[in-house]
Nucleic acid binder design. Sequence first.
DNA 1: TTGCAGGGGTCAA
DNA 2: TTGACCCCTGCA
Length: 293
Amino acid sequence: MNYKGLEINETAEGIEIQGVHDFDLVHIFDCGQCFRWLKQKDGSYLGVVGSKAVRVSFYNEKLFISGSTYDDFVNLWYEYFDLGTDYSKIKKALCKDEIMAKAVEFGHGIRLLRQDIWELLISFIISANNRIPRIMKSVETLSKTFGNEISSSEGVFYSFPKPEDLSSCSMDKIELCKAGFRCKYISETSDMIRKKAVDLGSLSDMDTAHARKELIKLSGVGAKVADCVLLFSATKFDVFPTDVWIKKIMEILYFKREATLKEIDIFSKDYFGDLSGYAQQYLFFYARETKIS
DNA sequence: TTGCAGGGGTCAA
DNA sequence: TTGACCCCTGCA
């Protein structure tokens, strides 16, 4: 079978997609955009997306997704893995200096996943002043406590809860996820989303500055979290989420001195323009993996 | 073994 | 502009 130029083989175990370029699971899942993919000993990853729990592996330009059908690919995975975007074009446009050329070469298989904006919102609220393993544990516990069970050939998993699941329950229950002072933010933001105080679905119709302002109305959401939510949900690509890693790498590689968040924001808009979000991902992965700072 | 610093930021003063 | 904030891990 063929879908938009990609050859797909469906078997009893799942689907195999051939001829996938600019794609590397480690680069994709380890560049800071997602919290629900767990690396396995054989290099494959187990993860939950929406109501699907799958194992993915990649080898020789072939992407394998367990327990999935051709229809799943058309309805979910093609979009989720952003397979319709030509990353070689983006990379070429970004490689206008030696720094970016190195970063792009290093994370050549990065792709920006198109993730559910609500799940991202709560996940990145949890990420504030936190560590990745703990963020993953909290997201997992929220799903186990409030989500639906998903049985798959790979085991039992849980979907991420809906806004009404989190807004209707007591603080005691939310505190089970051990997110500490962020539990209050989760509860308040869930309530605001349920009441449509902020409409996540309408953000794509706004310009970037307006969409960011809307998100910052939510409890526990500042500039950094807002930018992550906009970028990783594929709502806006001209944002440059600046955390401590990105700040350090920008200071070392570009500014050659200390710089404020505002300076970095202005620089990225001017220098990377509409591709700021992609640039951020290559730089983040480069900084993290090479421990450049 | 115990103790302490600090972490993918946000909020309130 | 600055410090507190949950909880947990890593390290002395």
